[in-house]
Write a protein that binds this DNA or RNA. Structure first.
Length: 741
DNA sequence: GTGCCTGCTCACGGG
DNA sequence: GAGCAGGCAC
C-alpha cells in the first residue's frame, strides 16, 4: 500500500504527470494541496529528483507553511531543501542576493501602503499637484497597476505621451521611482517587477535559478498577475518546462490587485502541449452546498466548465434568513452559534462568519463580546501597520538602512526631541543640495547654515543611532537592541502621556513585537536585522490564523479563500453590499462576474452547514440603507434553501446596543490585543491563575463576583463566577481577564 | 515647536 | 462613522 493509493484517479494522474507543462483545474475542496504535496513526494521518492530542484510557490505565508508541514510528513528525507515560499518572499530572497546588479543596495527596505502614501504626498507637494483633484490613493493604484503589468516609469511616460489626463501621473511615477531608489526602498509590486527586471538584465542569474528550479509548482494560479506570470514563465523557460500550475478560474477574486484571469484561461495557449487535468470530486461539502455553488457560478460566462460533486450525501438544506436590521442579523448568528455549541452540535472553532467588507465585523464583535464567546478577527488594521509598531520598526530600519529617509523622518521627533518641521525641512534641503541621505545630513548638522540651536538637539539623536549600530555590529541581539531603544527613548513614557488605556494596548503590542523578535532569533543560527525586517514586511493578516484554537473566526470572503469550516455564515447577502454597489452600477460585466466568484468562494467554504443572511435595513457610513436580498440568493433554487420565518426582534435592539457600547469598547481592547497571535506566539493559557475558588474577582462587563469553580482544560482554564446581580457565568480565563480584588 | 479643534473626505477586497 | 490634514492659539 503506497501513499498514492488514497488518491482518486484524476489526482493520481496529476501526481504522476511530472514532465512538461501541466494545468490542474482544481475545483474548491477537490484536494489540490494533497495533490501538490503528493506530487512533491513522488518526485523525490519515486523519480529520485533532488529536493533542491523543486520549487513550490503560494500566495500567503500560511499556505506555504502548511505545504511545508505536509511535505515534511510525506517525505522521509530532504524535504527541507524544497523551496516552498510565497511569490513575495521568493523575490526578496533572490533580490537580497543580486539586486546590486541593478543599482540597489542588497540591504533594501520594503515600503508598505502607508509609506507609499507619505512618499506620494511629498512628491505632490513638491510638484504642486492638487491632491484634491488627483488623489494619492488613485496615484498609488495607478502606479501599482502599471508595475503589476511590468510597465516602468519610462514606458508609462511613452505609452501616455499624448494622454492629457495622465501627464501628472507620469511625473509622479517618475519622481516616485527616483525617491524609492535613493531611499534604497522597494514597494510590494517592485519585489516582483525588479526580480523580473533582474532576470532580463542578468541572464546568468536567471540561468542559475533555472538550473536550480527544474520542477516548479504554483498554487492559486488563477490569482497571478502579469508580473508573477512573467516571473514563473522566465524560470520555467528551459527545455524541460516542468511547470505545474494549480488553480480554479472560478475562484479568481483578485482582479483589483492586478490578477489576470487570462493567465489560467489561456495556459494551454502559452504552453501548447500542456496537459490539463480537472479535479471535480469534492471532499469538503455536502451535495446541497455544492449544488448551490454550481448554480450560482454557472451564471458566469467566461469560465471553464466544471461541476463539483461529492460521494457523500445531500446533507442539510441551506439556511436563508432575512432580518429587519444588521443588529438582528448579528444577534441571530451569534445566538445560533451559542445554541449549537451548547447543544453539542458545533464547536466554536468550526464556525466562521464571513462578510464582504471589513466594516461589517464590528457588529459581530459586539455581540460575541457580550455573549462571552471567544473569537478571532482576521484583517482590519494589520499588526505591523500600527503606529507604535511602525515607530519601533522605523528605529530598526534607521539602524539597518541609513538610506531609508522615510524611517528616519518618522522617528526623528518621536518621542519629542524638539526637532520640528522647520528644522527637518532645512536638513532635507541640505541633503538634497549635497546629494546625501537625510541621516547623513543629520550627521553633519553643525555644518548646516541657519539651523541654529537645533543642531544641539540633533547630535544626541545621531549619536544614539550610531551607538545602536555599534552594539549590533559588535554582536548584540536584535531583541536587546530593541529593548535599549524602548528604554533609552522613554517611548513607553510617551505613550502613557497620551492616555493610560490606549498606552496599555500599545505597550502590549510592543511586547508582542519583542516576542516576535526573540522568536525569530531562537529559530535562526545567524539572526540578521535586515532579514527580520524583510520577513516582517511580508506578513499578511491571514498568516496569524491558527485553526486549532477553539474560536469563532470572523473575516472577509477574500481572506477565507483556501479555508474550510463546518458551519459557515455568509452575512450581508444584499444587493448593494454583496454584490457591492460599485459592481452593480459598473458598465463592466466582468466586475459582477468577479463578485459572483467571490460568492462561490464563500459558499464552498462550508463543509456541513451554510447559513445565508441579509437585513432589510442597515446602517452604512452613518446612513440607513434599504437593501433587497442579494441577486446571488435568487440564483439558488428554492428546493436547496430552507426559509424559516425571519428572526423577529425580541426587544428594541438599538437601545441594547447603545448600552452595550461602553462595555464593548473596553472589552474589545482586551480581545483585540489577542488578535495578532501567531502560531509560535500564542498568549498561552496562564501557568497558574492568580485567583482560586472563593476569591472575589472583577470582570470588565459583569462587574464583581465570586469564583465558584475552576476547571483546568488543555488549552485554558474554564472559570465559573457568580457575579453580583448577574448570576453564574462560565468563561475562559485568558479571555475573561478576571482581576482579583 | 506643540497641541487641540474642526472640517473634510473617504468608505471593497490585500501581499 | 472615523481618521486625518490643516488651521489656529499658545
Amino acid at each position: 500500500m503506497s501513499i498514492y493509493d488514497s488518491l482518486n484517479p484524476q489526482q493520481r494522474e496529476a501526481v504522476f504527470h511530472t514532465e512538461g507543462p501541466l494545468l490542474i483545474l482544481a475545483g474548491a475542496g477537490s484536494g489540490k494541496t494533497r495533490v501538490l504535496t503528493h506530487r512533491i513526494a513522488y518526485l523525490i521518492e519515486e523519480r529520485q529528483i533532488n529536493p533542491f530542484n523543486i520549487m513550490a510557490i503560494t500566495f500567503t505565508n500560511k499556505a506555504a507553511g502548511e505545504m511545508r508541514e505536509r511535505v515534511d510528513k510525506l517525505v522521509e528525507y530532504g524535504a527541507e531543501s524544497v523551496w516552498v515560499s510565497t511569490f513575495h518572499s521568493s523575490c526578496v530572497r533572490i533580490l537580497h542576493r543580486y539586486i546590486d546588479r541593478i543599482g540597489y543596495d542588497n540591504s533594501f527596505t520594503i515600503y508598505d501602503a502607508d509609506d507609499q502614501k507619505s512618499i506620494v504626498k511629498g512628491i505632490c507637494k513638491r510638484l504642486n499637484i492638487d491632491t484634491k483633484k488627483l488623489r494619492e490613493r488613485t496615484i498609488i493604484n495607478e502606479i501599482s497597476s502599471a508595475k503589476n503589468e511590468l510597465i516602468s516609469a519610462e514606458e508609462f511616460a511613452k505609452k501616455y505621451v499624448n494622454d492629457f489626463t495622465k501627464q501628472e501621473l507620469i511625473k509622479v511615477y517618475k519622481e516616485y521611482e527616483i525617491e524609492l531608489q535613493s531611499n534604497n526602498a522597494l514597494d510590494f509590486d517592485d519585489l516582483l517587477m525588479k526580480t523580473v527586471e533582474l532576470f532580463k538584465i542578468c541572464p546568468d542569474v536567471l540561468e542559475s535559478y533555472q538550473r536550480r528550479f527544474r520542477y516548479i509548482m504554483v498554487d492559486e494560479y488563477q490569482d497571478t498577475n502579469t508580473a508573477q506570470f512573467q516571473f514563473i514563465r522566465l524560470l520555467a523557460d528551459t527545455t524541460e518546462r516542468n511547470l505545474c500550475v494549480v488553480g480554479d478560474d472560478d475562484q479568481s477574486i483578485y482582479r483589483f490587485r492586478g490578477a489576470n484571469i487570462r493567465n489560467i484561461l489561456d495556459f494551454e495557449y502559452y504552453f501548447q502541449d500542456a496537459k490539463v487535468i480537472k479535479l471535480e470530486q469534492n471532499y469538503r461539502s455536502t451535495q446541497n452546498i455544492l449544488n448551490a455553488a454550481n448554480e450560482v457560478i454557472s451564471n458566469n460566462k467566461g469560465r471553464k466548465e466544471k461541476r463539483l460533486w461529492t460521494a457523500e450525501g445531500d446533507g442539510e438544506k441551506i439556511q436563508f434568513k432575512q432580518f429587519n436590521t444588521g443588529y438582528d442579523e448579528a444577534e441571530y448568528i451569534v445566538s445560533d452559534i451559542e445554541n449549537r455549541v451548547n447543544d453539542g452540535l458545533s464547536e466554536y472553532k468550526g464556525c466562521a462568519i464571513l462578510y464582504r467588507t471589513n466594516a461589517q465585523s464590528r457588529m459581530f464583535e459586539e455581540r460575541l463580546v457580550t455573549a462571552n464567546i471567544p473569537y478571532k478577527l482576521v484583517g482590519g488594521v494589520n499588526f505591523y501597520a500600527r503606529k507604535e509598531i511602525k515607530d519601533m520598526l522605523a528605529y530598526l530600519k534607521t539602524v539597518a538602512n541609513g538610506r531609508d529617509d522615510l524611517a528616519v523622518r518618522r522617528i526623528i521627533n518621536v518621542p519629542k526631541r524638539g526637532i520640528g518641521l522647520t528644522t527637518i525641512g532645512k536638513v532635507q534641503d541640505y541633503a538634497l543640495d549635497h546629494n546625501i541621505s537625510f541621516f547623513e545630513a543629520l550627521e553633519c548638522a553643525d555644518q548646516i547654515s541657519n539651523i541654529g540651536r537645533a543642531s544641539a538637539k540633533i547630535i544626541p539623536f545621531v549619536d544614539f543611532i550610531n551607538k545602536i549600530r555599534d552594539d549590533l555590529s559588535s554582536g548584540h541581539l536584535i531583541s536587546d537592541v530593541m529593548q535599549n531603544i524602548i528604554d533609552d527613548t522613554d517611548y513607553i513614557e510617551m505613550l502613557k502621556e497620551e492616555g493610560e488605556e490606549e498606552a496599555l494596548v500599545r505597550q502590549q503590542n510592543i511586547d508582542e513585537l519583542l516576542n516576535k523578535i526573540i522568536d525569530y532569533e531562537d529559530n535562526k543560527d545567524t539572526p540578521d536585522l535586515n532579514e527580520f525586517l524583510e520577513e516582517v514586511a511580508l506578513v499578511a493578516d491571514i498568516d496569524s490564523l491558527d485553526e486549532d484554537n477553539n474560536r469563532v473566526v470572523l473575516m472577509t470572503l477574500h481572506s477565507a479563500k483556501g479555508l474550510e469550516f463546518e458551519n459557515v455564515y455568509l452575512a450581508g447577502m444584499e444587493d448593494g453590499l454583496f454584490p457591492s454597489y460599485m459592481t452593480v452600477t459598473s458598465d463592466d460585466p466582468m466586475e459582477l462576474e468577479e463578485e459572483r466568484r467571490l460568492c462561490y468562494v464563500g459558499i464552498t467554504r462550508a463543509m456541513k452547514r451554510l447559513t445565508l443572511t441579509c437585513a432589510r435595513q442597515r446602517m452604512v457610513r452613518g446612513e440607513t440603507q434599504y437593501n433587497k436580498p442579494s441577486m446571488f440568493i435568487k440564483e439558488i433554487s428554492d428546493n436547496l434553501l430552507s426559509m424559516a420565518e425571519s428572526f423577529s426582534i425580541k426587544n428594541n435592539s438599538e437601545d441594547k446596543v447603545i448600552k452595550a457600547t461602553n462595555a464593548y469598547t473596553q472589552a474589545r481592547n482586551a480581545f483585540r490585543s489577542k488578535v495578532f497571535e501567531t502560531r509560535q506566539f500564542e498568549v498561552k493559557k496562564a501557568e497558574a491563575l492568580d485567583y482560586i475558588v472563593g476569591d472575589r474577582v472583577s470582570h470588565i462587563k459583569f462587574g464583581e463576583g465570586t469564583v465558584v469553580k475552576i476547571i483546568e482544560g488543555g488549552r485554558d482554564y474554564e472559570v465559573s463566577v457568580d457575579f453580583d446581580g448577574v448570576g453564574i457565568k462560565k468563561m475562559f480565563a485568558s479571555f475573561a481577564k478576571l482581576k482579583k480584588i
